[in-house]
């Protein structure tokens, strides 16, 4: 973990309310893994006070770049849009536990919705680099919000897309149907999901039925991001009942069968 003054390389709007931020921070980029995150200090003063957690979208080690995609939802992300190339940005990272590509994995599925697609893109890149086949199941309100689509195409990933409006809205299909169809003959070795509880539940069901080792990335309100405040807990199923674990330290990536909220329906 490092705290560094990174330099903004680029910060621009991809689609309405969806921004792509690139920051040069070589110390962090050198150690960052897909699924991990950084805490960004958005204000120069004390208001808003807390840092904001953002997952790594892509990690470009040889440039020393960290890429983020963020959705403007409140004051902090709004302030972030005002940062321009050349500005300094206080970053803390890499934080948390990223995705686990298990030894022997040959084929995976990434399942993402909306901004939840962001942390899956770096994973797809890393997987393809290791010769692993990637099928991507992505959904969003509109086609412009399907993050990383061009990149996934370039990487040769199989694409299963759904949007509420526009190009991919024709056949309204549940992600479960897509998963069944894509993996009818041969199950994937692992699935990775982020973006909504419903999606997590679909992946949990599929994984239990077909015996697939799957992971989910969770969000929780954070104060420190580094494990000190115990503020960011989620309920985990343990041998003797449920216990709280820190999303910033033991997560944000968890095995789906551990995550208690996926069982609360």
């Amino acid at each position: 973990m490092h705290q560094v003054m990174g330099q903004v390389v680029r910060n621009r709007e991809l689609a309405a309310g969806l921004w792509h931020l690139i920051v040069e921070a070589p110390e962090i980029a050198a150690r960052a893994e897909p699924g991990q995150f950084a805490m960004l200090r958005v204000a120069s003063g004390l208001e808003p006070l807390l840092r904001r957690p953002l997952s790594f979208y892509r990690i470009a080690r040889h440039y020393g770049w960290l890429e983020f995609v963020y959705k403007v939802v409140g004051r902090g992300t709004q302030i972030l849009t005002t940062r321009a190339a050349g500005d300094r940005l206080d970053l803390l990272g890499p934080l948390g536990r990223g995705w686990d590509l298990l030894p022997g994995t040959r084929r995976i599925g990434i399942v993402g919705r909306g901004i939840g697609i962001a942390p899956l893109i770096g994973l797809a890149e890393a997987a393809v680099r290791r010769g692993i086949a990637v099928e991507a199941f992505l959904s969003a309100r509109e086609p412009q919000a399907l993050l990383g689509l061009d990149l996934l195409r370039e990487l040769g990933c199989g694409l299963y897309l759904h949007t509420e409006r526009g190009e991919y809205s024709g056949r309204c299909r549940e992600v479960t149907e897509h998963l069944e169809e894509a993996f009818e003959e041969e199950k994937p070795d692992q699935l990775f999901v982020c973006g909504s509880r419903r999606l997590g539940q679909a992946v949990l069901d599929f994984s239990r039925r077909r015996g697939v080792r799957s992971q989910i990335s969770l969000e929780e309100r954070m104060a420190c991001g580094l494990g000190a405040c115990i503020g960011c807990v989620t309920e985990i199923r343990a041998e003797d009942g449920r216990e709280y674990r820190r999303v910033c330290k033991e997560g944000p990536v968890f095995w789906v069968e551990e995550v208690a909220m996926l069982y609360d329906r």
Partner: peptide
Amino acid sequence: HPGNPPPRVAEAPAGLINAI
């Protein structure tokens, strides 16, 4: 002791409210 149910932290003007 398990502590309080989440969410456990909330931001306030120049402050933090915690119920850990």
